[in-house]
Design a protein around this nucleic acid. Structure first.
Lengths: 152, 152
DNA sequence: TTATGTGCAAATTGTTTGCTATTTT
DNA sequence: AAAATAGCAAACAATTTGCACATAA
């Protein structure tokens, strides 16, 4: 059985490896931001991360957190949750459906599927969580962006 | 067989009914924003909607679009797509998982499930769409917010 | 008539960027 | 030593809000 310390060490090792592969420098700021991400279970925002990391690195600024997160995201070390681009998007939402989001152009395409509509939480979520809607989100590259000419 | 015109009429009728139920006034601005939402297939942003609605209501401003969308959302006439609150949220993303989002407090909870992991696009999406990730998003009310004391 | 909603301007908040000094490699 | 990066300030972008006039009910 592995201790928590061993687990953390393995994760930080992975961090260093990935940085080396991507040609990224291992700076104290990046290390601390990543460490907080590993520790956090609440999907922190930039502001939340800034407050936490500042305890160890008092001089760190929000813009460094922004830059660091964008960098980590590109390196596959952080995942941006539930946000397409930087502005909200809307629909009339009359018929139940799902979404495909292109990570190149930010386009959102509707996916209609009885099969996907039938998906439910079942035992995967404690009964106390009252589920109102279930949505499947596919992410990838849309046909236009996949074409040789990147004129999406 | 129903004509497009009949369909639109039915949808606008639904709009009026819902407004009456919610005690909302049917203003030209709201009508046009809703009409554009019905017509749009591309999940427009506030800016996109503003440009389109302005063709019919030249004096309308972006802040009216913002207010209108928030109002329509509360009335269940519009759906905000892929955004939790107004700032990006992050995670280390080491293990594949899904999310439950509380629409009261904005909290994000991880859901681990082999069953959900196995979901794929199949024939529901044209083969030209290259899918990289599949994620299920549950939305509803978390246990803390469901409690009588709303101290979430 | 009256409460609600719009338009305008200004304030807030979230995010990015240019520059210089600093630091990792 | 060289290239990448952090911190600072300032720019930029998205969204919200206070207020006076306009308008749907």
């Amino acid at each position: 059985m592995k201790t928590e310390q061993e687990k953390l060490d393995r994760q930080l090792e992975h961090f260093r490896t990935r940085c080396a592969e991507t040609g990224l420098r291992v700076t104290p700021q990046r290390l601390e931001v990543y460490r907080e991400l590993l520790r956090a279970a609440d999907h922190p925002s930039v502001d939340m991360l800034h407050r936490r990391v500042r305890r160890r690195l008092p001089t760190i600024t929000p813009d460094t957190i922004y830059r660091t997160l964008n960098t980590l995201e590109k390196a596959g070390l952080a995942v941006r949750v539930s946000a397409v681009g930087n502005s909200a998007r809307f629909e009339a939402g009359l018929v139940r459906h799902h979404h495909f989001v292109c990570r190149a152009c930010g386009g959102i395409y509707d996916v209609y599927s009885k099969r996907l509509d039938r998906i439910h939480a079942g035992k995967d979520l404690p009964a106390e969580y009252r589920v109102d809607t279930v949505q499947v989100e596919f992410r990838g590259i849309c046909p236009s962006c996949a074409e040789p000419h990147p004129e999406c």
